[in-house]
Design a binder for these strands. Structure first.
Ligand code: ZN
Length: 500
DNA sequence: TGTGCCGGGAA
DNA sequence: TTCCCGGCACA
């Protein structure tokens, strides 16, 4: 377990890196992506900044552009997303390369400041990098530039080789083709291993991807509660491959704690929102050179469509394509390990309860954060696995209700990364929430609702508890010595002194 | 029939 | 909350 724990932690910290990775993928050449102004158009909804909280993807998201580091000295190859300066209206303005056609030597540049997009000849476009700091024409350094400059200095220059990027492209292309030819559901991770680091190769891609998003909410201790994934295909998200690799590149660390479980009950649950430690779902662009992270699915789709697939996304194919270029990532908004301290009202009310001592540490540390409040509290208060507390104090009877409850198996929840969402039926939504138990559970769905999982399975509602054969106070002391009975017995309640 | 205890009610 | 008891299930 310990290992799991540590792993989990690692994962957590990892989160950020991963997100920012995409940029890295591009081998540092191209990079960032959007410009604030531009984004407005694309769906500003996204809080590109959100991920930043953990310092993760700050740079990659937007303002930053590593264009300055653009290596290619010789022939100018502009990459999408690269920041350039062009002369517009006799003025130099910063722009973003959207597309570079080497054949015609035309560069499609987006001018966020002007809010337009146009084609320039390559000669007319110069990488922003070349510009001396003060250069930014008339008005002095454009805010965007300044920003970028400062930010870029912090960016970790990706170690990836160019060929890796190329492979990525191929992979992606293959991916897309594959996806178009067959149902995404059936897809299996393409042999895109080429771009995947060895460390990664050994791991189950799906798990990997799943974990990525889930930051510490899942637990490895569990098993696939779902047992047989009803939707075997679901985990394999179309975008799996691209994403996979991109993440791999950025974060060698492996995460296998991920579990998917297509429990029908949970499928449609707005899990992310409910998480105590609020896991934010973001959508990351998987385009090889783009690491854009948007908050809304619509935004990301639009981004992919407009930025990578071309605006003319009208064909059915196109529409689908975009789905393959983004993935859902989950960003932990704030680590809330303290959640463990939050106790359920019931447990609090019973001072006698000592369960903390027996509570599995990992349960508290690991799953707790992932649990939704209701679950969390219940699970917490009874984290001692199937054990009763024998309270010596006669008055323990009062506390009985809370302690006597056989501890129900821990319920861990984890969010598997999901790309497709319910809005994309064609892609077979893979969003799922998995539940795992610390103890083996019968495949039978014992959870009618995740909210009631804490209810002790042992005490079947409506059925009387089978009377134990152990002698109770009444028998032991006899009616004549009723004063020696335990309180419970005196009150005709379940004996507290002689537990079964 | 005795025992164990749930559910409910009175103080 | 504390205490008591009706009444049911079970042995
Ligand atoms: Zn007793």
């Amino acid at each position: 377990m310990a290992s799991v724990l540590s792993r989990r932690l690692g994962k957590r910290s990892l989160l950020g890196t991963r997100v920012s990775a995409p940029g890295a993928l591009a081998e540092g050449v191209l990079v960032a992506t959007q410009i604030p102004g531009l984004q407005t158009d694309l769906g500003r909804v996204s809080a590109h900044t959100a991920p930043r909280e953990d310092g993760s993807c700050a740079p990659s998201a937007e303002e930053s552009s590593q264009a300055p580091r653009f290596p290619s000295p010789g022939r100018r190859q502009l990459c999408a997303g690269q920041q350039v300066l062009i002369t517009y209206n006799g003025q130099e303005c910063a722009g973003l390369v959207e597309q570079h056609n080497p054949l015609s030597d035309k560069v499609k540049v987006l001018l966020p400041e002007q809010g337009l997009q146009a084609c320039w000849r390559v000669q007319d476009v110069q990488p922003a990098a070349v510009q001396p700091p003060a250069l930014p024409a008339a008005g002095g350094p454009s805010p965007a530039e300044a920003l970028q400059r400062s930010v870029s200095s912090n960016i970790d220059v990706p170690k990836r080789k160019a060929d890796a990027a190329v492979e990525m492209d191929e992979m992606v292309a293959a991916m897309v083709l594959t996806s178009l030819s067959c149902s995404p559901v059936v897809q299996s991770p393409p042999a895109g291993e080429s771009g995947i680091p060895p460390s990664r190769a050994a791991c189950d891609p799906w798990k990997e991807s799943g974990d990525v998003s889930d930051s510490g909410s899942s637990t490895t201790s569990g098993h696939w509660s779902g047992g047989s994934d009803i939707s075997t295909p679901s985990p394999p998200h179309p975008a799996g491959s691209p994403k996979y690799s991109s993440e791999a590149l950025s974060s060698p660390q492996v995460d296998d704690g991920f579990e998917t479980d297509s429990d029908p009950f949970l499928l449609d649950e707005p899990a992310p929102r409910k998480r105590k430690n609020s896991v934010k779902v973001m959508y990351k662009c998987l385009w090889p050179s783009c690491g854009k992270v948007l908050r809304s699915i619509v935004g990301i789709k639009r981004h992919v469509k407009t930025q990578h697939l071309g605006d003319s996304a009208d064909s059915d194919q196109r529409k689908r394509e975009e789905d393959f270029y983004y993935t859902e990532v989950q960003v932990k908004e704030e680590p809330a390990p303290e959640a463990a301290t939050a106790t359920s009202p019931t447990s609090v009310s019973a001072p006698i309860i000592i369960q903390q001592a027996l509570a599995k540490p990992e349960a508290l540390l690991v799953e707790q954060p992932a649990l939704e409040p209701a679950l969390a509290s219940s699970a917490l208060s009874q984290s001692a696995p199937s054990s009763f507390w024998h309270i010596q104090a006669d008055h323990a009877y009062q506390a009985l209700p809370s302690i006597q409850i056989p501890v129900s198996p821990h319920i861990f929840t984890s969010i598997s990364w999901a790309t497709a969402t319910s809005t994309l039926p064609s892609l077979s939504p893979v969003r799922s929430r998995s539940l795992s138990f610390s103890e083996p559970q019968p495949p039978t769905p014992m959870l009618k609702s995740h909210l009631i999982v804490a209810s002790p399975p042992r005490v079947s509602i409506g059925t009387r508890k089978v009377r134990g054969e152990a002698k109770k106070c009444r028998k032991v002391y006899g009616i004549e010595h009723r004063d020696q009975w335990c309180t419970a017995c005196r009150w005709k309640k379940a004996c507290q002194r002689f537990l079964d």
